[in-house]
């Protein structure tokens, strides 16, 4: 895939990031800030009655790269079982072919998002 196509795809992901459900919009304290990201991005993980994982994220429109990263994780992980999410390799973001395109530094933000999602899944299982 051409570099420009990859960027375009990431932008499409950014545009597809679903808006937060009403219940989370009303209580921003539920959301966890991903400190490793340069732009303010917040994530929240929910595990439903049949152990399926639901991932919610929000990031500002002027941070499309961050939105794209969050959207890839939301679309890729939402609906998986807790064990499937926990089995996702921690270096998954480095395997997308984006590292050279967006720089290793920026990819670290996505790695941090994934780590926080997995940690929240563990907390929900334990909790």
């Amino acid at each position: 895939m051409e570099q420009r196509d990859r960027l375009q795809l990431l932008l499409e992901y950014a545009n597809e990031l679903p808006a937060l459900p009403e219940r989370y919009r009303e209580d921003p304290t539920l959301l966890e800030r991903v400190e490793e990201c340069q732009s303010p991005v917040f994530i929240f993980v929910d595990v439903d009655d049949v152990s399926r994982v639901h991932v919610f994220a929000t990031a500002p429109a002027e941070a499309p790269t961050t939105r794209g990263f969050a959207s890839i994780l939301v679309q890729g992980l939402d609906g998986l079982s807790t064990s499937e999410v926990l089995a996702t390799p921690g270096d998954f973001p480095q395997t997308l072919g984006l590292t050279a395109l967006v720089s290793p530094l920026r990819i670290r933000g996505m790695t941090a998002m994934l780590a926080r999602i997995k940690r929240q899944v563990r907390e929900r299982i334990a909790g």
Binding site: L7, Q8, L10, L11, A14, Q38, S39, A61, E62, A63, P64, T65, T66, G68, L101, V102, S103, R106
Partner: peptide
């Protein structure tokens, strides 16, 4: 930009 995709928007 700081954001590598902002131009594309």
């Amino acid at each position: 930009d700081e954001d590598v995709l902002l131009y594309e928007t």
